[in-house]
Design a protein around this nucleic acid. Structure first.
Lengths: 178, 178
DNA sequence: TCCAACCTGAACCGGATCTTCCGGTTCCGC
DNA sequence: GCGGAACCGGAAGATCCGGTTCAGGTTGGA
């Protein structure tokens, strides 16, 4: 593979990542090409069709996100602190994107499915641990928390310090009253 | 107008209301027709085009929502209690729908615009009052709270007692610490 | 009974996207 | 440098999808 081709492929992936994270799914091939400073034809040189492109992006993003979560979960800081970091990094591009792509209708291939399941498991465990530790309110089920992350935090255009993320995080903290 | 025609019109409106609230904008004419147990042609007998149908639904829903908010705001209960009820009723169909329709791209006609502005104003005033009263955390701007309502509570398929609504509401409460 | 109003749903259309394709360009080993 | 294989650009073509129409059958009500 020629050096410029490799460079272009990377540009495509990086740019698609950005665009999906920013605007959700539904960005067109044309937009991605323009963003990467290339022609559409070039996208098709590197990926047989849109689906393949999307799949690569999704897998990349999920892999990255998974690594991040795994690393955070392995720390031995208080679970709440870890959870707060998880929220912060969930609001960043990679995961907002994964969620957006999940809606693309594509039945994701086995690899991505397995990864997704693993990540969900890690998140639920983290929530349970935080609840046991007493730092997170206990009247929401772990799956609900994961859903909340998906619905409120991992939305296109989210930022870790926007009002909604802050409010959700505070809302999940154990309140002294209950 | 024949009796069955009137009946059908009502069915269309009711069903479109449901579908938009449940699935967001983007439900097709076909879907609405099927849901109402009618053919597409019938929709076009009652509305010149999709835009007109959507506009009627949106106006109806917003009018209803506005009336509800106005009534709540006029009570002299503590502002926090009122706010909690606003959240609850925002999670119900009418408003989830208004927000969904706002994204339809249609420049809304003057009437709806005015109504929307009025409602937003009422909401912001309510937030300010609750903050002054000390029941709502003061480190979020009123506009941010309105945005949060829009993003987290008024989403298609929301329910007043789902986890996200509860968490957001708690997250907005004044915490003794700050 | 009669007919105007009404309903149905398959076919039609427009435009937004994806995909192809070939002339022109760029890299890289020799 | 040179040659040519690999690569790129972007207009043209193919597809998809949902809104819209309309000819033909049905129904309410005087």
């Amino acid at each position: 593979m020629r050096a410029d081709a490799r460079r272009n492929r990377e540009r495509i992936v990086a740019c698609a990542l950005d665009l999906f994270a920013e605007h959700g799914p539904g960005v067109g091939m044309e937009d991605i090409a323009r963003g990467a400073g290339l022609g559409v034809g070039t996208l098709y040189r590197h990926f047989p069709d849109r689906r393949a492109l999307v799949e690569e992006i999704a897998a990349t993003a999920l892999r990255r996100y998974g690594a991040r979560i795994r690393a955070l979960a392995a720390r031995d800081d208080p679970r709440w602190d870890v959870f707060a970091e998880v929220v912060a990094c969930s609001a960043e591009q990679p995961f907002a994107l994964v969620k957006a792509l999940a809606e693309e209708g594509t039945a994701p291939p086995a690899e991505r499915n397995a990864l997704q399941r693993e990540v969900d498991g890690l998140l639920r465990d983290l929530v349970r641990a935080a609840q046991r530790e007493g730092s997170m309110r206990a009247d929401v089920r772990p799956e609900e928390v994961v859903d909340i992350l998906g619905a409120a935090v991992c939305r296109p255009g989210a930022r870790a310090d926007d009002a909604l993320c802050r409010v959700v995080l505070d809302g999940l903290r154990r309140r002294d009253g209950a």
